[in-house]
Nucleic acid binder design. Structure first.
Lengths: 141, 141
DNA sequence: GTATTTGCAAAGTTTTTGCACGTGG
DNA sequence: CCACGTGCAAAAACTTTGCAAATAC
């Protein structure tokens, strides 16, 4: 975990960007929250700095996303959800009923989907896959 | 295909709704387009009726979605993508690079994921699965 | 010092809502 | 007929952009 916290600053610099407190705060917020919309990130960052602006949140999320430090998906209707990309990769089974999330190791998912993906000459983003469906508890017919 | 075109009107009526030309046009547009954002549906519907309003498109898409006649996903950044639910089910591989979508039959996807899903006692929504990744053309390293 | 980044405010997009009129059943 | 649905216009929600001041290096 310390291995990745060392390199993100370097990655910023390497790409010609500057290390600002806003960028640290946004990344920290995304990592703390796990999954969050821009608004939620803003609220979290606001707890630590009064003056940061929403547009900075958007610009920073976009930058961190480009650098691969965070990822985003559009799980809900209005608003993308961002999350850290520095932790270990895993896919999710998400229950539409109770919203429960079951984490599945990247390896298991890759083993299951690999062959099919190869057939289509496609390289899935295994560490980032979300499979919607119904869990055992919510399946009653 | 004629089997399902018979029942959607019934499904509307059964749920206490009325059969209007706007609703027919919107459903037809979604089925014709395959995948479309509300705006694209609007454009398509406009070809057939000058007077239909965008807000009607939104209201109708929401209704058809509730009735299960169409489904939607949030594949791209701004704007949900609607598609018919009356046709045959399929999953998608979506390339993050070129945005190309590869359709995969439900059966194939189920065959690949079934065992893993069973392990977790989870029932994936195979007909609506979207797997992000990179297609052959965009994979160059 | 100077090029990047930020805050602010204003504009752009997409989606929702209130209401009077129109229309399907 | 009468409740449901539609068009219209205005508002809300979300995101982007221009620019001067601030700041990282």
């Amino acid at each position: 975990m310390s291995a990745s916290t060392e390199s993100w600053q370097e990655r910023l610099r390497a790409s010609g960007h500057r290390l600002t407190p806003q960028r640290e705060l946004v990344l920290a917020a995304v990592e703390k929250l796990g999954h969050a919309t821009p608004d939620e990130v803003y609220a979290e960052v606001r707890l630590h700095s009064e003056s940061i602006n929403l547009s900075t949140i958007y610009r920073t999320l976009e930058l961190l996303n480009e650098l691969g430090l965070i990822r985003h998906a559009h799980l809900t209707d209005r608003a993308p959800t961002y999350h850290s990309a520095t932790g270990h990769e895993h896919a999710h089974f998400v229950c539409r009923g109770c919203k429960k999330m079951i984490s599945v190791g990247r390896g298991e998912m890759e083993a299951a989907l690999g062959e099919l993906a190869a057939t289509y000459d496609f390289s899935p983003d295994y560490g980032h896959l979300t499979v919607f469906g119904t869990c055992a508890d919510c399946r009653e017919d």
